[in-house]
Nucleic acid binder design. Structure first.
Lengths: 220, 220
DNA sequence: GAAGTTCCTGAACACTGTCAAGATACTGAC
DNA sequence: GTCAGTATCTTGACAGTGTTCAGGAACTTC
């Protein structure tokens, strides 16, 4: 039954071609240009065809968003890896935050899509029950804080909670920046980076053991 | 020239009626229901009429957003005022953060509109140069930190920077919560409040003078 | 009452997501 | 090789969106 397999392969190929086209349009022309028709034109198919591969536009977008999350995760991993072997907790923490903010600034449309997706439609519907899994960097941050705790470098409470707060800080800065609410407070583009550093430093200090001076190296 | 004045008054009245209709639809039916036609129907005018009062839908929305910001500012002021006379810096800081998060949760559609407006249209356009003025609570936070600094309670660097970081933390938590990215980490609705408290505590502690124990009262 | 101004509307345009019905091309069986 | 069946794609429409523009109605001024 090689035929059935080939067909399945072709189906899968076209499906990913659709997602890639959507991703490209998003990166190159922005969210407003991302319509079913523009995607269809790009892949040289009829708009209706897309509905043979995705039930709704939202389903397609969700796939794009998923790709965005793995891209963001990769950026962070790369940034942490560039620290060299055995970086200490603080460095690792800062690198994660920096990479997050940087991704947001460099992939505006993508970043916004990733976090503004859940339709603001319903008036006061709370977040969707449908599971949006926690991103990998959250897990990494948790182990980071846990390790720092074990090394006696911090007395942060629940590591999971601390990780969420860390994520929130970076996300808040990126989000406010992208929505333009930070511009009156910032002179140049470099000042966002400063703000990021200040935020990371404050957080890390807030977790530090009382009386400890400079953060010691926990590894290597 | 009473006639000209009356006309001007009527014009202004209809204009605010449009904004109020938009605000009501947004609160009651959500962002998706907020169309030029739905607003027109609500005020019993033709859709085209709205364009005699607003050049584009975005201009109208901007007005709604502005109203939302004053509402949020009022919520925060109220929360701070409820602390009673001469609250200390930490309490005031926490109250601000709590009120912010609460507003976001209780006015989902409004909150999202306020911060997701700047069209994600362009691919990598950085935030709009058009001045979105800094909200009043930012100024309040700045004076808060400044006062705390003068009282020797904190050695936070630039108070303006600290205020932005504080804002970012709350905004990040709210934003992540509303986009559903926090749900897998939270058991119940009360846990967001816990997270908010943890974040505020961490921040405040990160600003504290080295070696200081419990935050002292700076006033009263 | 005529002329002029202001305000509003009906109807259209180009766009959107979405879908039912039909055309097309490929497959398997006789 | 032909025919039925199936998988795939397209045509053309529907209802909705923001937006514009020519024209009509009401009011004001002369």
């Amino acid at each position: 039954m090689g035929i059935a397999e080939r067909r399945q392969r072709q189906r899968a190929a076209l499906r990913t071609r659709i997602v890639e086209a959507a991703r490209d349009i998003l990166s190159a022309e922005g969210l407003d240009a991302l319509s079913i028709r523009s995607i269809a034109e790009r892949i040289e198919y009829s708009p209706a065809t897309i509905y043979l591969y995705f039930r709704h536009k939202d389903d397609l977008i969700r796939e794009v968003v998923k790709a965005g999350f793995t891209r963001l995760a990769e950026s962070i991993e790369r940034a942490v890896a560039e620290l060299g072997p055995d970086p200490n907790s603080a460095e690792q923490f800062r690198a994660t935050g920096r990479a997050y903010a940087r991704f947001a600034v460099e992939n505006t449309a993508y970043f916004r899509l990733m976090f503004e997706l859940p339709k603001a439609s319903r008036p006061d519907c709370l977040p969707p029950a449908e599971a949006v899994p926690l991103p990998p960097w959250h897990t990494d941050l948790v182990t980071l804080v846990t390790r720092a705790k074990e090394a006696g470098l911090t007395n942060a409470g629940d590591p999971a909670q601390a990780a969420l707060v860390g994520w929130a800080v970076m996300h808040g800065l990126a989000s406010l920046y992208l929505s333009g609410h930070l511009t009156p407070a910032l002179q140049g583009p470099g000042e966002l980076a400063e703000l990021v550093e200040a935020a990371l430093a404050t957080l890390w200090k807030g977790w530090k053991v009382e009386g400890t001076g400079e953060p010691a190296r926990d590894r290597g």
